[in-house]
């Protein structure tokens, strides 16, 4: 795994926050990639906001699955043995009620106060927040998976979000292809950096103030 980089590295490291038996909610897109990198001996139960626990990925070509089992993107999904289905009210009850161990989402912006913006860019048409606001407000641990900078190279990890928020002060960890940041009461702590990068590079690509401990770990 020493040569793992980019989005794979983000998923690999994020999956190492999971504990065996955790109920996890993985946002659409990059967060679902965590399942490709589960550590040996770690089995998680995948929650989907539309009313199921135990989603087990897309069917293979030609494999029959029940068309009434879909994931949060509306795509047909397999349901593992022991999985279950329920109504949306039950689903969001346990999401808000702290029964989901880890919620993993992407970000437009995230800041050193644990604020997250990932649903709306003023001047463009928002698609809506869906279940994101509830997931971030309710999960016991919120992890943001994000490329460190946007497509133009501008930092996404800021002192203060500029976009409308999804939730305030709820983010616990930020995992990028360069580092792992832990949001604490004191601020954002640089806990780990990726192989091949330096603390200086991370600081130069981050707008937020970072607390640099005496020892910074590596992501792998």
């Amino acid at each position: 795994m020493a040569n793992i980089t980019g989005r794979d590295l983000i998923a690999y490291r994020t999956a190492r926050f999971f504990e065996d038996g955790d109920l996890v909610n993985l946002g659409i897109g990059m967060p679902t990639k965590c399942l490709e990198f589960l550590p040996e001996g770690i089995d998680v139960w995948v929650d989907t906001e539309n009313g199921a626990i135990g989603l087990a990925g897309s069917p293979a070509d030609g494999e029959w699955t029940d068309p009434d089992v879909v994931d949060a993107a509306g795509a047909v999904s397999k349901l593992r043995t022991g999985g279950c289905c329920f109504d949306s009210f039950t689903s969001f009850g346990y999401i808000r009620g702290g029964h989901v161990a880890v919620s993993v989402l992407g970000a437009y912006e995230v800041d050193q106060e644990g604020n997250l913006a990932n649903w709306m860019v003023p001047g463009t048409t928002a698609a809506g927040m869906g279940g994101a606001m509830d997931l971030v407000a309710g999960a016991r641990k919120v992890i943001i998976m994000t490329e460190h900078c946007d497509k133009k190279g501008a930092p996404k990890i800021l002192k203060k979000c500029t976009l409308p928020l999804t939730a305030a002060n709820e983010v616990d960890y930020i995992v990028s292809e360069l580092c792992v940041l832990h949001r604490t009461d004191a601020g954002l702590v640089l806990e780990e950096i990726a192989p091949g990068t330096t603390v200086e590079e991370v600081v130069s690509k981050t707008d937020a103030d970072l607390i640099i401990p005496a020892t910074v770990g590596t992501m792998i």
């Binding site: 808000r96 604020n115 606001m133 407000a137 309710g138 409308p164 928020l165 939730a167 305030a168 002060n169």
Partner: peptide
């Protein structure tokens, strides 16, 4: 009464 949406445009 819900915590969802506190501190957001909602």
């Amino acid at each position: 009464l819900t915590p969802t949406g506190l501190g957001t445009p909602i």
